[in-house]
Every structure is written in C-alpha cells, then in structure tokens.
C-alpha cells in the first residue's frame, strides 16, 4: 500500500514556502504540479541540472560530422566532379550545410531526449491529477509512510500555507 497526501495552493509563494518547509523536515515530496514553471522550485526540490544541453551538444556534434563527412566523401571520393572552378574539397562551400545539419540534429536530439525522459508523447498514458492544475492551482503531492506517523506534521505545514483540499489518498499496489 502506498499513501500520499495532496494539497492545492492558489499562489506560488505559498507553494514555495510549503515545499521548503517539507524539505527541511526531511519529508519526501513525490511531485509538484504547476500551471507554469515556478522559479526557485528546482533548487528547493533539489533537482539535478538537466542533461538536455549535453544531449544537444552531442547530437549537434554528430550532425556536424555527418554533414561535413558526407559532403567530403561524396565530392572527393565517391564522385569527384569539377564545379565552377572550385576544388573538390571546398571547405567554405560545405560550411552552410554543415551548420544547418548541426542545428537540425541538435534540435531533434534535445526534443527526443526531453520527450523520452519525461515519458511524454502522443498517446502517453498519464493520469491527469486535477484539471485545475493547468489553469490556476498548484498541487503538491507528498509521500507518507504506511504507519501515518508524519501525517499530522505534513498537514500542519500545508495548512499553515493556506493549502486547500488536503486529502490523504491510498493506493493498493
């Protein structure tokens, strides 16, 4: 059995303070759902830096090599042809396409990384916790232990920050 508590806030200021309080009391926060990115939340929840920029760099570098390598191979090895008095290995000529493919690969790499890591995509099965989350409510979902020893403390912290609809839910595993 897994137990958790969910509570709704109307203002991100309350949410931030509540999350900070909970973290300071070593209570694990399962998830926070917000209608827009709340600044400062990442650091309170202790998120590590996203690796998406790294993915972008690597896929971009692959794009660079594919594009430059392919053009070089096609024009110097596979089918060397004189065009407009340019050398076969015409570096300046290859740069525009190389640049474009670098950007293209990096963009695709990052978007796929984002979707896969977040398990988002067409037809992704996600439970919609509450329809107000994408509108004007901030939800915090806090894990509780089975014994219920933390319940009181968590509720205190939440209600101090004017949380509404504080509900304990249980799901059978």
């Amino acid at each position: 059995m897994r137990r958790y508590i969910s509570a709704y806030f109307e203002d991100e200021g309350n949410l931030l303070r509540a999350a900070k309080d909970l973290k300071e009391n070593n209570i694990s926060i399962q998830d926070v759902l917000t209608p827009f990115p709340v600044h400062g939340l990442d650091s309170i929840l202790g998120f590590k830096k996203s690796l998406i920029p790294t993915v972008g760099f690597i896929s971009g570098a692959i794009g660079t090599m594919v594009a430059f390598g392919f053009q070089t191979w096609a024009f110097t090895v596979d089918y060397p042809l004189f065009i407009g008095g340019k050398p076969h290995f015409a570096i300046p000529s290859f740069i525009p396409i190389t640049f474009e493919l670098t950007v293209l690969f990096a963009a695709f790499g990052m978007v796929f990384a984002f979707l896969i890591r977040s398990k988002l995509g067409p037809g992704a099965k996600k439970t919609i916790h509450d329809e107000r989350i994408t509108d004007d409510h901030f939800v915090i979902i806090v894990d509780l232990d089975e014994s219920g020893s933390q319940d009181g403390k968590v509720k205190d912290i939440l209600s101090k920050e004017e949380a509404q609809d504080i509900k304990v839910k249980e799901i059978e595993l």
């Binding site: 990442d42 979707l115 989350i133």
Partner: peptide, 17 residues
C-alpha cells in the same frame, strides 16, 4: 498535449530545452 501533467521535473526540462 503528449500527456502533459505540469510536473516540476518536466517544467525544469521544458525550460532548459
């Protein structure tokens, strides 16, 4: 919507990307 939930972790990645 690709199953968007508004999770804080998703937002973090979303901002980064």
């Amino acid at each position: 919507s690709f199953g968007w939930t508004g999770s804080a972790k998703h937002w973090q990645r979303h901002e980064s990307i």
